[in-house]
Design a protein around this nucleic acid. Sequence first.
DNA 1: AAAGTTTATGCAACCGAGTTGCAAAGTTGT
DNA 2: ACAACTTTGCAACTCGGTTGCATAAACTTT
Lengths: 135, 135
Amino acid sequence: MKENESKLENRHIKPTAMRELVLKVLSDQSAAISLADLEQKFEKADKVTLYRTLKTFEENKLIHSIDDGTGSVKYALCKETCQCHPEDLHVHFLCTKCKQTYCLTDIPVPSVNLPTRFTLETINMVVKGICVNCI
Amino acid sequence: MKENESKLENRHIKPTAMRELVLKVLSDQSAAISLADLEQKFEKADKVTLYRTLKTFEENKLIHSIDDGTGSVKYALCKETCQCHPEDLHVHFLCTKCKQTYCLTDIPVPSVNLPTRFTLETINMVVKGICVNCI
DNA sequence: AAAGTTTATGCAACCGAGTTGCAAAGTTGT
DNA sequence: ACAACTTTGCAACTCGGTTGCATAAACTTT
Ligand SMILES: [Mn+2]
Ligand SMILES: [Mn+2]
Ligand SMILES: [Zn+2]
Ligand SMILES: [Zn+2]
């Protein structure tokens, strides 16, 4: 998995063994995963190390975090070009049946007309419903 | 405050002293408040009682809860006619400076075109930025 | 009005997600 | 080989939210 190694380097993250393993898990995942989910993907791994790995990934914009209202933050890979700016934002979908959280990367967050003299920094938009696998 | 009493009765909530006090606090508030905020509005009140009061209010749609991503859920009064259905949903605004959370009741949540065979139940849309009081 | 039943309140204790401190292990540069 | 820095692992903690249970208050029935 030389590819993941260079993904890390592209984001200026030192490619340790742990980090490559975590990145592999994230790459194999079609839905976003929580810290607890991630922990369960390993036989024996320290939660704090995984936590800090995710933090490092997020700080360097390799992944973004999603607060879907379930009480546990989810994480998903950013696109190669993503800088996590407002224009990179997309809608997230939480399936109330399977509890999976998906990045709807094709659906940009719609713009809103805020009241006068409210300035926008970022938007979190989470749609809840039933996903295609749960119909 | 006979008005609050009837607001409670309209929502089929038995108007106890505690509940009327809590409703008064919520009515006086222009922004949404958390359980902790509510607790601080009283000299001496049990957090659990307040917690259960909010739960009761929410179940009966007197108030709605807002997960603004700060880690503590906020609560705000519903409109008299609100049934908390998708058509009643509005955008919420979290000021990153004063940390106040506002109901933008005039701004309905924009509709999104979900991928095929995803069905919508509800949407949470939180805009972050600087509010009019913090410019 | 007294007894019985339901509902609301208060205290303690718990829970889970996230976070911090610190020491050990590993890495990098000289 | 040594020093300097980074990463990892363990323990312990924080904080918001929640449950269990006993008491108190409010209605119901006799
Ligand atoms: Mn996403
Ligand atoms: Mn609102
Ligand atoms: Zn699903
Ligand atoms: Zn503000």
